[in-house]
């Protein structure tokens, strides 16, 4: 946005406006045809929606004790996945950042691999790893680790690229080697960013890990899938509420830690 804008914004040409609008309309209509959008179906099924919501409004509180164990497993998965991904991301980012005098070719290839990793959603990774390692939390942890690795690396190496070069030059001129430059010139400048990104990845991983179980990758999701299959919406409601509370609590804790860090 332009601050203190005193002139009225320029009018866009009518022709351009209407071509854009009609293109958008065509895209919408074509997409609606491809995906068989049926508003009528939604309206006729409103009764079903009402039934589901009605059932969900009487949560089966006794189910809480059943899902508490898997819930803890979910949190553990998110912690381990984030930790493994973040530990790997640290040296990796230091290597691929453009101002770190690494081999251009190697870091280019590594950045390309990282870009590819980041295009694949967590749940897809988890689905693949379930097929490889079998049903259980291990597949989920690996998927979360790879996802966190991709995300933390991307954010972290970009912030390394924006650091102040002064300390590095000072260290260089006093004869420091590469490791010493990293330790005293680079890391002190970026370490707080790193923890921030790790916390951010952890928040996303908590959300993601709650549904990983649905495809067999461990945690509370398997109970969600079970309750939905048994058409026990009172139990579905309990699981959703618990996920909601946990996500809010983790976000709160992580914000507190973040305030401490800065």
């Amino acid at each position: 946005m332009i601050p203190n804008q005193t002139t009225l914004p320029k009018k866009t040409g009518k022709v351009k406006f209407f071509t854009t609008l009609s293109m958008l309309l065509i895209i919408i209509v074509v997409s609606a045809i491809i995906t068989d959008v049926d508003i009528w179906q939604l309206l006729t099924n409103l009764g079903q929606a009402g039934y589901i919501l009605e059932q969900m409004s009487h949560p089966d509180w006794s189910y809480v004790s059943v899902v508490l164990g898997p819930l803890v497993e979910t949190i553990r998965m998110a912690i381990l996945g984030t930790a493994f991904g973040a530990i790997l991301a640290f040296p990796f980012s230091l290597y691929v950042a453009r101002n770190m005098e690494s081999s251009k070719a190697v870091s280019g290839v590594l950045r390309f691999i990282n870009n590819i990793i980041r295009t694949i959603p967590e749940l897809l990774l988890a689905a693949v790893f379930v097929a490889v390692f079998g049903i259980g939390p291990f597949a989920g942890i690996i998927a979360l680790a790879i996802f966190s690795f991709g995300m933390v690396t991307k954010l972290f190496f970009e912030s390394i690229e924006t650091i102040d070069e002064g300390p590095i030059e000072a260290l260089k001129s006093s004869g420091a080697n590469r490791l010493e430059i990293m330790r005293f010139g680079v890391i002190p400048q970026v370490i707080s960013y790193y923890w921030n990104f790790v916390l951010f990845a952890f928040e996303i991983n908590i959300r993601a890990s709650t549904v990983l179980g649905y495809i067999g990758a461990g945690g509370i999701g398997i109970f969600l899938s079970r309750a939905l299959k048994q058409v026990r919406y009172d139990r579905v409601a309990v699981i959703i509420l618990i996920i909601f509370v946990v996500v809010l609590a983790i976000d709160y804790v992580s914000n507190k830690v973040r305030e401490k860090l800065s």
Binding site: E73, R76, L80, F133, G134, G136, P137, F138, I141
Partner: peptide, 9 residues
């Protein structure tokens, strides 16, 4: 976190 995950599967 590590202690609670079963890697049996």
């Amino acid at each position: 976190a590590f202690a609670g995950i079963s890697f049996n599967g």
